[in-house]
């Protein structure tokens, strides 16, 4: 089904949390393990601009539909970061602009070279590179969506769970956009399918792996996706990715989980 970009833009808004009782966290606080995972998810949301930057080095942003999506998506993700930071703030964990800046500065040379690398790739490969970005974005959004739903179910917290479900609801729309774009663009070009498969198989890492330490990524993966139930969710994500043209049989998320020694039972 085609993604209705006009409707999406019209309905795009900052995730609401003012009606939720955040003082609940004072009497019913979250565990250290959960806070650590939320901190990681918050970092990912706050670094959306870094991903946006990479997308913008492809020619796709000149297409009105993609430009519109990026504008709304970037702002929605910013607010996800704000919402999660407010949860952390209620537990005495501060995430302010200066700290985010420090994290981004720590990314160092790799971060400085990324836009150059991406631009060169984009120039070499041309429009097919857009398809790869869309498939990569779809894999990320499916993972994020699953992570929020899983954490909401695990915690069953009167404030956190509804908040996470609201965030996940917006992520569902992001998934729809990326997946429909990827599907369409991959179907059109064999080169895009071959390149996309190669890139996902060899370079894709769990969301956050480019900005957080390996230790933190392993923590989130283990916390959210360990055990039989977690493994089932991860396989669901992989099955979505595998349905994209040219991606049959890929199991990148499960592979990432196993690589980090997260047990499936």
């Amino acid at each position: 089904m085609a993604f209705d970009i006009v409707k999406y833009a019209e309905n795009s808004d900052a995730v609401a949390w003012q009606d939720l009782d955040f003082d609940e966290f004072l009497t019913n606080p979250l565990s250290e393990t959960t806070l650590r995972s939320i901190r990681n998810l918050c970092d990912v949301e706050d670094h959306t601009v870094c991903y946006l930057r990479d997308m913008l080095t492809t020619p796709s942003h000149k297409e009105p539909e993609v430009g519109t999506f990026m504008t709304m998506w970037n702002r929605e993700e910013f607010w996800h970061g704000e919402a999660l930071a407010t949860v952390l703030g209620k537990h005495g964990i501060s995430v302010d602009f200066d700290e985010l800046k420090a994290t981004r500065l720590k990314l160092g040379w790799k971060d400085r070279l990324d836009p150059i690398k991406q631009s060169v790739m984009s120039n070499l490969v041309g429009n097919d590179f857009v398809a790869v970005h869309m498939a990569w974005g779809a894999a990320n959004e499916w993972s994020a969506n699953a992570a929020y739903h899983r954490l909401a179910a695990m915690e069953d917290h009167p404030t956190l769970s509804p908040l996470l479900k609201r965030i996940a609801q917006q992520e569902t729309k992001h998934v729809a956009f990326y997946a429909s774009q990827a599907r369409e663009r991959l179907a059109k070009s064999r080169k895009a399918r071959v390149l996309g498969r190669w890139v996902l198989q060899n370079f894709w890492g769990p969301v956050g792996s480019t900005i957080s330490s390996e230790e933190e990524v392993t923590h989130v993966m283990g916390h959210l996706f360990a055990g039989a139930e977690g493994r089932k969710i991860v396989r669901d994500i992989d099955s979505h990715i595998a349905k994209l043209p040219g991606m049959q049989g890929l199991t990148i998320v499960e592979t990432a989980l196993e690589k980090r020694g997260v047990a499936g039972s």
Binding site: V49, L56, T57, F97, R104, L105, R112, P115
Partner: peptide, 12 residues
């Protein structure tokens, strides 16, 4: 794009 490919993207 022109702003974010530079260090401006680091300033949160």
């Amino acid at each position: 794009r022109n702003l974010l490919v530079t260090a401006t993207h680091k300033d949160a």
